[in-house]
């Protein structure tokens, strides 16, 4: 009897199993690695209409975040400053610099500067800036080292897990209220001591400010 199937077909089942396993693992690994805000959002650094540098203003000049984002303590939304805020200084500093053309135009005519929003949670998430900054959560926890960014990029994933990690354990992130906008602040230069103090003080502040570990859906979704 002549061979209907050539000899190599004996290995076919093994080949199918190995090929299938490889493909499945590659797809799983790809989805796990790429289909998450850790990949999709982190690192997003759009070109802004005005090349504003947080590093220059905060790190070099020592300005407080709230000089410009002045409603962050009262509002759920941390405002982009009005052009008039920029003009408080830039009516004299870099007065004729072409980079500030849009700012001057905006201050004079009220035409908004088309800033590109970087950090944006889904529209069904109701994040409130005021309650966070007034209860010991620093800007750096969600926005990363903004004070050192020449151009702002998305530094943290802002995924639901990211929120929940902190909501399940607020004591690990709380800090004294006068250090909220001091992004480089730590309890101690020694990381071990800092972590220990954070544990102890975090618990204390949680009790004192009655910070709740909110995990119910309606805390953020309404």
């Amino acid at each position: 009897m002549s061979a209907i199937f050539p000899k190599w077909t004996n290995r076919l089942p093994v080949m199918i199993i190995i090929g299938g396993a490889l493909t499945a693992s590659a797809v799983t690994a790809g989805v796990w690695y790429y289909f998450t805000p850790k990949y999709a959002r982190v690192g997003y650094q759009p070109i802004q209409p005005v090349s504003f540098s947080h590093a220059t203003h905060v790190n070099q000049l020592g300005m407080d975040c709230r000089y410009c984002h002045d409603k962050v303590e009262q509002s759920w939304f941390s405002n982009i400053p009005a052009a008039s805020t920029c003009m408080n200084c830039h009516n004299q500093v870099l007065k004729d610099d072409p980079r500030l053309e849009l700012v001057r135009e905006s201050a004079a005519t009220g035409k908004p500067i088309p800033w590109v929003q970087i950090h944006r949670v889904p529209d069904f998430v109701y994040f409130n800036h005021a309650v966070h900054v007034n209860r010991g959560i620093s800007c750096v926890e969600c926005h990363g080292p903004i004070d050192k960014m020449e151009e702002v990029y998305h530094a943290k994933p802002l995924s639901m897990t990211f929120c929940l990690d902190c909501h399940r354990d607020p004591a690990s992130k709380l800090r004294p209220l006068d250090k909220i906008t001091d992004l480089n602040w730590t309890w101690s230069d020694d990381p071990n001591v800092a972590a220990q103090t954070q544990r102890a003080k975090g618990k204390e502040m949680m009790d004192h400010w009655r910070v709740e570990s909110l995990e119910n859906c309606s805390a953020c979704h309404r």
């Binding site: 999709a40 959002r41 690192g43 650094q45 070109i47 405002n79 982009i80 908004p112 529209d123």
Partner: peptide, 27 residues
């Protein structure tokens, strides 16, 4: 992960992440 990019984040599953409602300081 974390590479800097100029491209807008991909919305792989749009769900209802962007809704037709007024948000402050937007066009």
């Amino acid at each position: 992960r974390g590479d800097l990019t100029r491209n807008r984040p991909l919305q792989i599953f749009p769900d209802m992440k962007r809704q037709l409602k007024l948000r402050p300081q937007t066009a």
